[in-house]
Design a protein around this nucleic acid. Structure first.
Lengths: 224, 224
DNA sequence: TGGATTCTTAAGTTATTCTAAAGTATAGCT
DNA sequence: AGCTATACTTTAGAATAACTTAAGAATCCA
């Protein structure tokens, strides 16, 4: 999962990022309105944690923009003051949940989990694609109900493919999503070949091929 | 958003229209097969609410037609009886969701929202030119719904042609666009002939020629 | 520390892109 | 109209860039 943490209090930002990175998530951060706005426009996130009171602009504006762009990220609002109005307005604008400062990281985490559960995947913890099933809670995969042992990166890659099925994903996009933009790997995408190869080997189901090469542009996930 | 409500029960039609108009949507209505068919042909809608059991014809036929015309409206089927077959057939034909009479308007509304969310409407993913369709996300091309395997350059070239249809494009312009101005190929455009040739071969559809030579000045993309 | 995972490297394979060359059409000129 | 220079078409194959795959090194994590 890829998160954006839009929060201007540096230490809070950092502690959230550290906490959420624990279970293999990619956390990117934005420290002001402008940075957040830019990142939201450029990249896709599964979860956006959005402080309403950014110094340089309103988080609500960002939320509005996000929804206008039809991005389907789950949004959790952080509000400093206890202003009910802010929260309500946030929820109206399409935020999925809110949390009030100060809060425990564990609570934030469980709210995130809840949003993910409710969210894009129709309240189901499983995602299906033909013979493939992903259990998003256990981070485990099945082909024809037979469990497939995937490593973390393989699971993330498969999830990314399935949630973007049919679409050509360039190596750059894949790298961006699985490794984040601050990674120092991103000048050489060759290692992606390796992950593609490994995932292909594990997915191959009676000769069915899911990951199709779009020569020169990337890969796309289809049902043969 | 613009909706079409194809429903012959006048009072239901009206209450749906009233309800959906609440948040600034345009609702048009059709009370029989013929009217619905005509409106679907003439206009574009984001959402079509389609009663399967129209008195004067089958909603499934309408759905079929709609999909043949490559209209990308989201379709929600209303079925009176609980016939599972109707629903399944509807979904097979490309409906996005269904709802069974009687239903609460709020439920219809939330299904519409879900369809809109899933479908990313407004994010125009396909480009059409007569028999040709380009799926810009999948970077794939179709002629009369038959997939055409294109290489990267061929796809880029076709996309460039379609988005500049009718205009004469010089080899310099094409090269500039497909290869960028920093390329060292740009003192000799001969290789463009090859790409044009390859693309022509792949596009030729029952003798129809799309790429017309403008002798001495370039090429122009037209519908025969 | 030891085992699993992830990344690096490199050799082998394939698809695509470009070059070259021979044939065909077009426009302009006398 | 006929000739010529130039522009375009087409094909085949060479060169290149992109991908696959395997094996080993580095890293991470329990």
């Amino acid at each position: 999962m890829k998160y954006l943490i839009a929060e201007d209090e540096k230490d809070l930002q950092k502690s959230i990022a550290t906490y959420l990175s624990q279970d293999a998530n990619i956390c990117e951060t934005a420290s002001d309105y402008h940075e957040a706005s830019e990142k939201l426009e450029l990249y896709d996130y599964e979860i956006v944690i959005l402080d309403i009171n950014l110094i340089t602009g309103s988080g609500l504006d960002l939320l509005k923009k996000l929804k206008q762009q039809h991005k389907k990220a789950g949004v959790i609002i952080i509000s400093a003051n206890n202003s009910l109005e802010d929260k309500l307005q946030g929820l109206d604008l399409g935020a999925d949940d809110y949390i009030t400062k100060p809060f425990h990281l564990a609570e934030l985490n469980s709210r995130i989990k809840a949003v993910l559960r409710r969210g894009q995947f129709g309240g189901d913890d499983s995602i299906y694609f033909h013979e493939i099933k992903l259990d998003t809670l256990a981070r485990s995969a099945y082909v024809n109900d037979m469990p497939i042992a995937l490593t973390r990166k393989e699971y993330d890659l498969l999830l990314f493919f399935i949630t973007n099925q049919g679409r050509v994903l360039s190596k750059a996009i894949i790298a961006e999503h699985l490794w984040g933009d601050d990674s120092d790997l991103l000048d050489n995408f060759d290692f992606i070949y390796v992950h593609i190869n490994n995932l292909r080997k594990k997915l191959t189901n009676e000769g069915a091929k899911y990951i199709q090469t779009a020569y020169g542009s990337g890969y796309k996930f289809i049902a043969d």
